[in-house]
């Protein structure tokens, strides 16, 4: 009997982040144009497993995703026990560029979701020439907060339960149960203060209304795709962001929420394949 092995392979990258040694776990599958996927706040690379097992994508794209330190298989930096984790625009940008440079990825596509989508706007504004294209899922230059992040890490509320309970409604009601509950399981595992530390970036250090004007989509194409059931990054937030960036291509995804790639992979595929086809075709032309 032959083992049923998925094509996803995981490895560890040793590098430095903010001047400190870190061990970054990453997964990859496929070959071709590098496509680096950035997970949502409080989560890890497992959100992208469906893209990595889809031959329509992996036949042309080398799909990679790394766990930010503090979650999944990437441990926090040494000394973490005496500090409070807080991601920033600088530290997030640094680790993405470090990852791409260390693996010698040639003008990768970067696709991020939620906070991973937000940071693609900074990459576009500050480092657009390094990338073949940028894709922001559930992304906007700014969003209105809807809860106090103090709930996420306190001794009298179960951290995993409250993280999953808060975000459960960001999954569209049409999403299939299996994918919904796998998406929520990823949040139920959240380490103490990790979601909150990610949200420091999202809430306090990434109001990009000051820099979307710097984005030149002739240098690096920008795609923004948002699910209609996402009330965190709303359709209005993404539409407003896209309207301020000449050449940005905005797609509103029906029957999807804040976690399109994991909450309903089949539905997300309908929206992301045309984008990836366009990027691949542009590469063939160039």
């Amino acid at each position: 009997m032959s083992a049923q092995l998925e094509p996803i392979v995981g490895r560890y990258l040793r590098t430095t982040w903010q001047g400190r040694p870190v061990r970054l776990y990453f997964e990859e599958a496929g070959g071709g144009i590098p496509l680096v996927c950035l997970h949502t706040a409080g989560c890890d690379t497992s959100q992208f497993r469906h893209l990595m097992t889809d031959p329509a994508i992996t036949d042309r794209f080398r799909v990679l995703a790394f766990d930010l330190p503090w979650r999944g298989k990437s441990p926090p930096p040494v000394g973490w026990q005496d500090e409070e984790y807080a991601l920033t625009t600088d530290s997030y940008t640094e680790i993405i560029r470090t990852f791409c440079a260390a693996l010698e990825l040639d003008k990768p596509v970067v696709m991020g979701c939620s906070m991973g989508g937000r940071i693609t706007l900074n990459l576009a504004a500050r480092h657009g020439a390094e990338f073949r294209a940028l894709i922001g899922l559930e992304a906007a230059d700014h969003q209105t907060p809807w809860y106090d992040t103090e709930w996420l890490n306190r001794p009298d509320v179960h951290g995993g339960e409250v993280c999953a309970g808060l975000i459960s409604g960001l999954v569209a009601p049409q999403s299939p149960d299996e994918a919904r509950w796998e998406t929520l399981w990823q949040y139920l595992q959240s380490g103490p203060g990790v979601f909150k530390g990610d949200l420091h970036f999202y809430r306090a250090d990434s109001d990009y209304r000051d820099r979307t004007g710097l984005i030149d989509t002739a240098v690096c194409p920008l795609y923004l795709l948002t699910g209609e059931y996402d009330f965190s990054c709303t359709v209005e937030d993404t539409t407003r962001t896209g309207a301020a960036i000449p050449g940005a291509k905005v797609t509103i995804m029906r029957e999807l929420g804040h976690f399109p790639m994991s909450e309903n992979p089949a539905k997300f595929r309908e929206y992301i394949l045309p984008v990836l086809n366009e990027i691949a075709a542009a590469g063939a032309d160039g």
Binding site: V162, Y229, F231
Partner: peptide, 28 residues
């Protein structure tokens, strides 16, 4: 959309959640 979750309602102002929220948040 917007009517599918209690937090969608509170964010939009369509619903109010008030009082001591600890029992609610710890049993979401």
């Amino acid at each position: 959309p917007g009517y599918h979750d209690i937090f969608a309602l509170t964010k939009s102002g369509h619903a109010v959640l008030e009082g001591d929220l600890l029992p609610f948040m710890s049993n979401l």
